[in-house]
C-alpha cells in the first residue's frame, strides 16, 4: 500500500491550527532516536512527537502483548513496566488495550517515564478509552510518538506498521502475552529483523493465550523466568525495592495468599475446597487481600497482584 493511498483513506481531520505541542523531528536531526535511525529503512523520515523528546535517546525497552489479555499477561506487563521504570528504563509500548495499557500503567504507577507509539496522529488518542493513560503519560514527563501527521485517524494497517517503530526505539522487546496469530509477534519479528533482543514471558502448555510466547522462546527468544532477567539483559543489577510486607495479614489471609501464589490463579471454589474453610470465610479473606492490594479478582478467579 503506497503512502498516498493511505493518506487518501486515512485523511486528515485538522490541519495546522491545532498542532500546539507537536514537534516534528526529521531523520537527520540530532534529536532523532539513534537506535531507530540504525534500523535503516524501518526508520520513518519524520517523527511527530508530543512531550519530552529527550526520551527518544534514553535507554528504553519495549513491552508489548495481547489486547485481549489474560490476568497473568496483564500482571506481567504491569510489573515489568513498573520494574523498568524503577530502574530508570523507559518503557515503550503502543497504548493498545490489555498488555500495552498495563505496561504504561506499570511505569506510571511509580511516576515513571514511558513512550507510547501510536498508529494515528500523535494528537489522536486511540483507543479513546485510554485517554486517561494518554494524559497521564504526558503529565509524568512521557512522550507520544507517531510517524503520522497530527490529525490522522488510524487505519488497521497502521498498527502493524507502527510496531517496527516500537521495536526500533528499544534495546530489547519483551512480549508479555501472544496467541498464535498475535500482532505482538509482528513486533517481535521486526525486533529480530532489526537485530534487537527479543524476550518472552513463558506460559503453561495448556494456555491458548500464551502459545505465541512459547513459540518465540522455542525460536530462540530470551525467556523471562523472572523480571530480573530483563534487567540483566539490559546490564542492570536489580535493587531490591519491593520486598512484600506480609505482617499485616491474618493467618487466614496468608494461607489463601500462599495458595494463590502456588498456582498463580485459583477460583474461590477451589480455594474453599483446598483449605476446607467455608466459602463465606474464603470470600471475606479474598476481599481483604484485594483491598490490601495483594491479589486481584477477575472472572471469578484470584490472581497475584504484586
Amino acid at each position: 500500500m503506497s503512502n498516498s493511498e493511505i493518506d487518501s483513506r486515512g485523511g486528515k481531520i485538522n490541519s495546522g491550527s491545532m498542532l500546539s505541542g507537536v514537534v516534528e523531528i526529521k531523520k537527520n536531526s540530532s534529536s532523532y532516536s539513534s537506535l531507530l535511525r540504525e534500523t535503516g529503512r524501518d526508520a520513518p523520515e519524520t517523527l511527530y512527537c508530543i512531550g519530552d523528546i529527550s526520551l527518544l535517546n534514553r535507554r528504553s525497552a519495549a513491552v508489548v502483548g495481547a489486547r485481549k489479555a489474560s490476568q497473568y499477561g496483564r500482571w506481567a506487563a504491569f510489573n515489568i513496566g513498573r520494574k523498568l521504570a524503577g530502574h530508570g528504563i523507559v518503557t515503550v509500548s503502543g497504548l493498545a488495550y490489555g498488555c500495552d495499557s498495563e505496561a504504561h500503567k506499570g511505569a506510571l504507577s511509580v511516576n515513571g517515564r514511558t513512550i507510547a507509539v501510536l498508529g494515528s496522529g500523535p494528537d489522536v488518542c486511540y483507543p479513546k478509552r485510554n485517554r486517561a493513560i494518554y494524559d497521564s503519560i504526558l503529565e509524568n514527563g512521557g512522550l507520544i510518538v507517531s510517524e503520522h501527521e497530527p490529525g490522522i485517524i488510524p487505519l488497521p494497517a497502521y498498527f502493524a506498521q507502527r510496531n517496527r517503530i516500537i521495536s526500533g526505539l528499544s534495546i530489547l522487546t519483551v512480549v508479555t502475552e501472544a496467541g498464535i496469530a498475535s500482532g505482538s509477534l509482528i513486533t517481535a519479528e521486526r525486533a529480530a529483523d532489526q537485530g534487537r533482543t527479543v524476550m518472552a514471558v513463558p506460559y503453561n502448555m495448556s494456555s491458548i493465550n500464551g502459545i505465541g510466547c512459547n513459540k518465540l522462546i522455542q525460536d530462540g527468544a530470551g525467556i523471562v523466568a523472572g523480571i530480573a532477567d530483563i534487567l540483566e539483559e539490559l546490564g542492570i543489577t536489580q535493587h531490591d525495592d519491593d520486598e512484600i510486607d506480609l505482617s499485616g495479614l491474618s493467618p487466614e489471609e496468608k494461607r489463601l495468599l500462599n495458595l494463590v501464589r502456588a498456582d498463580g490463579e485459583i477460583s474461590l471454589n477451589y480455594a474453599a475446597a483446598r483449605t476446607g474453610r467455608k466459602i463465606s470465610e474464603i470470600n471475606a479473606a479474598a476481599a481483604l487481600l484485594e483491598i490490601k492490594g495483594f491479589i486481584v479478582t477477575s472472572l471469578g478467579k484470584l490472581y497475584i497482584a504484586k
Binding site: R74, L268, N283, A284, A285, A287, T297
Partner: peptide, 18 residues
Amino acid sequence: TGDVAEAVQYRCGRDIFG
C-alpha cells in the same frame, strides 16, 4: 468485619475486562 469483607466480594460494577 468479616461480613463487610464478604459483601465486598459480591460487589457489582467490576470491570470484567479492563
